[in-house]
Design a binder for these strands. Structure first.
Lengths: 133, 133
DNA sequence: CGACAGTACATGCATACGCATTTAATGTCT
DNA sequence: AGACATTAAATGCGTATGCATGTACTGTCG
């Protein structure tokens, strides 16, 4: 076997490992996410991303800008904007103008949002327990 | 500190670890997937899920049923059906009736599909190298 | 001060998704 | 053989997403 063939073989092996790692990551993610989505929806009427947003707002309960949420959950800016709009329509968060920079908005969790979060948290942790290892 | 308080604290710690693990998984997945999506799209005009399907068909190049694809990629049955339809429209795969069970269809990769796969594979591996550790 | 680049969020639009249902073929039970 | 449950894939429908763009505000530079 020529030297370069061996190198190719070695790199193929490394590459294959990477691919397997990716598939595991993908499988793991899909399993957790879809279970979360399903159970949070049926028990609390919210999606997994909605929950992540509520959790962010509930724990880091300072004034939280829309842009901060975009960083926390892994969504585009526009998706975050609509997510906040949905949550507001359901009465779980409030949008408030930001005096310091009137382009931005502060998103705050409402009492109803807190309750919803605390209830959903149980389900969330339960699912993580079941699906992560 | 009462005993039950300690137990709660301990379980909270374990729970917090689980939550962190989930956030890492989510962040990792999002980073890899969106980079894949982006680069595969701009260089080869296909999405990340399309690539996964092509890879499955190219490597396991036996007759592959639509249902097998549904298992391999993490999509619903209907999403897989439409994915195959898109790939067929682009001439990358073919649908063939299955004689043994005429409800099912066999999906096979075309020559154009093979070429597309081999080209995209480079990009795919490159992205995995960059984004997985 | 006034124009103009930059930033924060909202929105129009196209698309991919999941759920529920439909359609067609298979298998089973009497 | 005939009726009925089951399965494979397609499709109608509602919705969440990303990209591109719009709108409102800020900050800077001349």
């Amino acid at each position: 076997m020529p030297a370069h063939a061996k190198l190719v073989a070695v790199s193929d092996v490394a590459e294959q490992g990477l691919v397997e790692e990716w598939h595991e990551l993908l499988a793991r993610y899909s399993a957790v996410f879809s279970t979360l989505e399903c159970r949070l929806q049926e028990r609390h009427g919210i999606g997994a991303n909605e929950f992540e947003a509520l959790e962010r707002l509930a724990t880091c309960d300072f004034k939280c800008r829309s842009a901060d949420l975009t960083g926390a959950i892994h969504l585009s800016q526009s998706a975050t904007s609509r997510l906040v709009a949905r949550l507001e329509k359901e009465g779980l968060v409030q949008r408030a103008l930001c005096d310091a920079d009137r382009r931005g908005i502060f998103v705050t969790i409402t009492d109803a949002g807190q309750e919803k979060y605390l209830a959903a948290k149980q389900t969330h942790r339960e699912v993580l327990n079941e699906t992560l290892r």
